[in-house]
Design a protein around this nucleic acid. Structure first.
Length: 507
RNA sequence: GGCGGCGUAGCUCAGAGGUAGAGCACCCGGCUCAUAAUCGGGUUGUCGGUGGUUCGAGUCCACCCGCCGCUACCA
């Protein structure tokens, strides 16, 4: 089972381009594996505990639960908008999760890795949070710019320090554990500096999961959040499903939360006696005008700002085709529009339009199932094979290379029409048989094209599939069989409207 | 400060010791089935700088310049 996860998102913040990016890549990769015929479990969700949620609820005169029930809808809406195909959506306020948090923390405690100690440090009353000396700016709280006080409270701590060597050994033995390599280097150098124990509970807060052995504390939000990955896999009371699902194939994360996933989470799992996920895959940020998106800069862009213009598939294609998974990427409307017009409207959309138009015009949409396999057709077969091969890039989150490779099929198909000139064949009754062959091969290219674009653009692929008059869907798989270039069946195709209407820009 | 990464065509990027690449943009030509679409051809680079190793260096080494990431509790 391919178990793939996104982080659980903090619902106080709206899902913006960055959170949507993580989820989108996870979705495309999940679809790729399904297309290959693998069993997939794709998880996303929301992280609903913590001080900020409790406060936001209070400001609105609501209970925290009522507040999160309300705002979690934004995430369902966003993922519906982008055709995200998650199998499960976990919320940390669900019983299945809170009970799992308690079970896992108990397992860590039973392993002797949890102890009680006094935590003392600079505390900002306004933030209701502790800081480290390093975080203070000129000795005052960086947010409120007010002096901090030294506060102390009794907390439970996790013996993270005991796991540094095992963590390093694991990373060395499993080079794929943290990707890309530059992030792996960061993790290694961090662990090599030595690890300190971390506090895993808060006594000052009530909106969280109570510790099973001390109800006056709730689990620190990160402990709570990370455990979602096993909660949703059935750790607590579905042993068969858990055995099939865990360890995860990949946790996708933004680079800002890498350390929690590549250090703290593995140590927690080791302590609880569970195997580690195969891979933590970390991506960069999406920059707008070279700057990080943030509310304060007012440059935050939401998926809903782009989908009305580009459609869910135009949205998905742009981010998968133009953003490399590891480094930071840039977003611009101009770049997105240029990509849309060049690849979707021109190469792919127009190919679909002209091919179906030819089939309707010369054969009323019913092209006989006659195949040719001469020198003219060779590039089509090669293009189809190249597309299928390139698709494997999804296994390493190389979405860019995967789609670049898929486009070789569309280039070949456009060139094929130029080489065979069906519009000329149609003028000569003696060439009727050859025209059938050319139209059949062109339609077959579209059939394969619908399959190989499905992980990235499921809606367009399914629309195309329907126009081709085929049974089932392009995502049915298995890829190795369905994407083999052969003879297009004797069905009736319909032209329909342009799949990707060209976007007019000012220039 | 320490560790790590990046700097290649106007743009986005690939290449990691053997004649500088792709896509977009741009120019020329063809075609007319098609969404001013498509096909063919073409131009563009002191591969950040300096020095070194080598028969040969984007590719290895040293130093320098510029940008960036990490250096513990930020969802």
């Amino acid at each position: 089972m391919i178990y793939i996860t996104t982080p659980i998102y903090y619902p106080n913040d709206r899902p913006h381009l960055g959170t949507a990016y993580t989820t989108l890549v996870a979705d495309a990769v999940a679809r790729y594996w399904r297309l290959k015929g693998e069993e997939v479990w794709f998880l996303t969700g929301t992280d609903e505990h913590g001080l900020k949620i409790a406060r936001a609820a209070e400001e609105r005169g609501m209970t925290p639960q009522a507040w999160v029930d309300h705002i979690v809808e934004r995430f369902h809406e966003a993922w519906d908008l982008l055709d995200i195909s998650h199998d499960d959506f976990i919320r940390t306020t669900e019983d299945r999760h809170t009970a799992t948090v308690q079970a896992l923390l108990t397992a860590m405690r039973d392993a002797g890795d949890v102890y009680e100690a006094r935590y003392e440090g600079p505390y900002c009353v306004s933030c209701e949070a502790y800081y480290t000396e390093d975080q203070l700016v000129d000795g005052v709280c960086p947010i409120h710019e007010r002096p901090t006080e030294i506060h102390a409270e009794d907390n439970y701590f996790f013996r993270l320090s005991a796991y540094a060597d095992r963590l390093l050994a694991h990373i060395e033995a499993n080079p794929e554990f943290v990707t890309p390599e530059t992030r792996r280097n960061e993790v290694v150098s961090f662990v090599e500096q030595g690890l300190e124990d971390i506090s895993i509970s808060r006594a000052s807060l009530t909106w969280g999961v109570p510790l099973p052995w001390d109800g006056s504390h709730v689990a620190y939000v990160w402990m709570d959040a990370l455990i979602n990955y096993v909660s949703a896999a059935g750790y607590l009371d579905e042993p068969d499903r858990f055995a099939a699902t865990w360890p995860a194939w990949a946790h996708l994360v933004g680079k800002d939360i890498l350390r929690f996933h590549a250090i703290i989470w593995p140590a927690m799992l080791m302590s609880a006696g569970l195997p580690l996920p195969r891979q933590i895959a970390s991506h960069g940020f999406l920059l707008v005008g070279g700057e990080k998106m943030s509310k304060s800069r007012a440059n935050q862009i939401l998926p809903g700002d782009l989908v009305p213009t580009f459609g869910p598939d135009g949205y998905r294609y742009h981010f998968l085709r133009d953003v490399s998974f590891g480094p930071d990427g840039n977003f611009s409307w101009e770049g997105m529009a240029a990509r849309y017009n060049a690849d979707l409207a021109n190469d792919f959309g127009n190919l679909v339009n002209r091919t179906l138009n030819l089939a309707e015009r010369y054969r009323d949409g019913a092209v006989p199932a006659v195949a040719a396999d001469g020198p003219d057709e060779a590039p089509l077969r090669e293009g189809a094979a190249a597309a299928v091969e390139a698709l494997a890039g999804f296994e390493e989150f190389k979405t860019k290379q995967a789609l670049e490779g898929v486009w070789r099929l569309f280039r070949a198909a456009n060139a094929y029409l130029e080489a065979t000139e069906p519009w000329k064949l149609a003028k000569d009754p003696a060439q009727a048989g050859r025209l059938d062959e050319v139209l059949n091969a062109s339609l077959e290219a579209l059939r394969v094209g619908a399959i190989v674009t499905w992980p990235a653009m499921p809606r367009a692929a399914e629309t195309l599939w329907a126009r081709l008059g085929l049974d089932g869907g392009p995502g049915d798989g298995p890829l190795a069989e369905t994407a083999r270039f052969g003879t297009f069946p004797a069905v009736t195709v319909t032209k329909g409207d342009p799949l990707f209407p060209r976007i007019e820009t000012d220039e």
